[in-house]
Design a protein around this nucleic acid. Structure first.
Lengths: 226, 226
DNA sequence: AAATGGTGTTAACGACTTGTTAATCTCTAA
DNA sequence: TTAGAGATTAACAAGTCGTTAACACCATTT
């Protein structure tokens, strides 16, 4: 699955250049022309990285970043800023795990940062290991451990479970899951997802504190009672 | 508290029509016949929005707007203007966060602008979390929490409640609710909406400060007493 | 006060969603 | 080419929710 990038940049020509460039490198890019559109778009799909211009009409990049944070505590945000601007503010965000890049920049530079983020999300910061009640889910090795037994999951099973873990306690809409795991933007009528949810529930049934809850007509939520 | 609107319009019949219309929608409107009266009235109370005709005797709308600004830097001002008038000047105000509407306009259009202003002033972004007395309504997760209990709402229940929350203290016409939730442009004779209102009232009955009030022949208003 | 029409509420129906098993398809590695 | 794992589809049972019908109740008008 290609990584999905949300790009918010009010200058249309610069925006287009970046988008085009990133797409050539195999990313899937959505370009928004201002902060409001950016937030709306962010809420419609799951993105791996956000690239946000600081100076934008309607809603500046910092505001957008905060709002994105309120929806998703993990997604990395990369600020694009003119030289010398508001360095202190950016430093604050940097401590939160985000980063910034100063205009003008080369595409190489931008891609480097993005790759760092993506690697981090698959490797370091994003845990490989989720605690689910008494279970331990190692999404790198596709294994689900309970005490001394270890069940090994298939690729898709692991992807679905990982997504649920990353968004624990949040209702994920069916289409969000489809987009994230199956990369299916268009209409999808199959029941694969339900089959996988069913399997996962079966694997997880030994700890009643871990539950995949259905929201009728909407999607699913992973709940872990403490 | 219903939103307070200061309306300055020198044409008495047009002024009356607008006032009447806005009041039917649950706003509290004060009508002034010229700029001087407008300014004097503005200084006597706190208004949430000002609707100002540009062409007025004694004091034109732009002058009034500037003076209002000197008293209050935040209150949004909506200019009413004839077609093609002084567009550059208005554009200047628009950058200051204000807006304008060109005669002739429909009431729907006017209300839309006003609502945009009101929403902007109460919360920067559309929140996902509404406080309703002792309740907390999380409209992303379809949950209504009261202390330690959590009621999970269905999709439609959540949509209706969300709409009411977004327009708290404003009378929503039946037709407006139908359009927003059921997307039904044409006439609609069913009673579904009433059933949902009934359900919501039942869920909310544990805090008497939160009330969905019916306006006979018009619609409903969500009131939250402080 | 009666008449008209809007509102509050319940229960039942039907359409649609979901959970699950089994069968089928698809790919990859012998 | 074939075996086997894993993903998808088919099929159906079970469950959920939205709508409607029905009726009592209330507001407004005559």
């Amino acid at each position: 699955m290609a990584a999905k990038i949300l790009l918010t940049e009010d200058d249309p020509s610069l925006g287009f250049v970046i988008k085009d460039n990133l797409e050539q490198r195999g990313y899937q890019v959505t370009l928004c022309k201002d902060g409001e559109e950016g937030l709306a778009t962010f809420r419609q799909a799951l993105f791996d990285v956000c690239v946000v211009d600081v100076m934008m009409p309607k809603k500046d990049g910092f505001t957008l970043a905060q709002q994105i944070r309120s929806y998703n505590k993990n997604v990395p945000i990369l600020f694009v800023t003119a030289k010398g601007m508001l360095e202190d503010k950016i430093e604050g965000f940097k401590k939160g795990g985000d980063d910034y890049i100063v205009k003008p920049f080369s595409m190489e530079e931008l891609c480097l940062r993005i790759e760092v983020f993506l690697r981090r999300s698959t490797a370091d910061a994003q845990p490989d290991n989720f605690a689910l009640g008494n279970f331990r889910f190692d999404c790198r090795n596709f294994t689900l451990k309970l005490e001394d037994t270890e069940k090994s999951l298939t690729q898709k099973e692991a992807e679905v479970l990982k997504l649920l873990c990353q968004h624990k306690d949040r209702v994920l809409k069916r289409e969000e899951i489809l987009n994230a795991v199956w990369g299916n933007d268009d209409y999808f009528l199959g029941r694969s997802m339900d089959v996988f949810i069913s399997k996962l529930r079966k694997y997880l049934k030994d700890d009643p504190r871990v539950q995949i809850v259905n929201y009728h007509g909407v999607g699913f939520k992973l709940e872990v009672a403490s």
